[in-house]
Amino acid sequence: MMRRTIPMLILASAGLLLIVAKFSPFTVSWQETVLGWFNILAAVAFVLGAGNLLAVNLEQISSRRPGWAYAAITLFAFAVTLVVGMFKVGAVPNGMHPDIHLAGAHDVPQAPFGWIYDYMLVPLTSTMFAMLAFYVASAAFRAFRAKNIEAILLLGTAFIILLSQTAAGMFLTGWIPEDSVFSFLRLDVMKRGITEHIQTAGMRAITIGIALGVAATSLRLIFGIDKSYLSKT
């Protein structure tokens, strides 16, 4: 009973407080305190996460399960980055406190931690993001099928946006004078019409729905009507 009641009380009081803080400056400091608690919890939980990462990967290595070599690489990378970052290995000395090692800068390219960032994290992250181009192409090939009127409209819109976002848009329709009655046939004009009016209108409708959904969900949680996130054990 207490396992569910106390978390619900904490949620209700914190939730109401955050609402009140929107309207009263005097509760802003309480709000900051509540958000501070979350940061502390998240920091402590990070240790839990790191422990879990170690446990799962060590277990995989010790039982020689398929892919154990990847687990070993993960742990090696984790350990190296942790040690290099935490102890500021090879940090560039601070001009004002050259004798204090921990005052040095470790996130500059000359330091090992900065090197890891510049030459490992940046390329890896960029590569993953760049893969989106490939997935967008395969999704477009598979999903953009003119099966009905709505799909045909979607298809036409996609062509206009795709062309107008490149020099092809100007090449194809750039010759139509901007001040002529036919200017609406220019791809850049059509794109503006689609993005600024049709898309924005649709986006606003979705956003209003989402905002109301957030409000209703929050009220269900604050008043303890929805308890599904709590353990029943």
Partner: peptide, 15 residues
């Protein structure tokens, strides 16, 4: 991708 989510998910799945 978050430690607290792991904890909450464990509680939920166990439940």
């Amino acid at each position: 991708s978050r430690s607290i989510v792991m904890t909450a998910a464990r509680e939920t799945v166990q439940s």
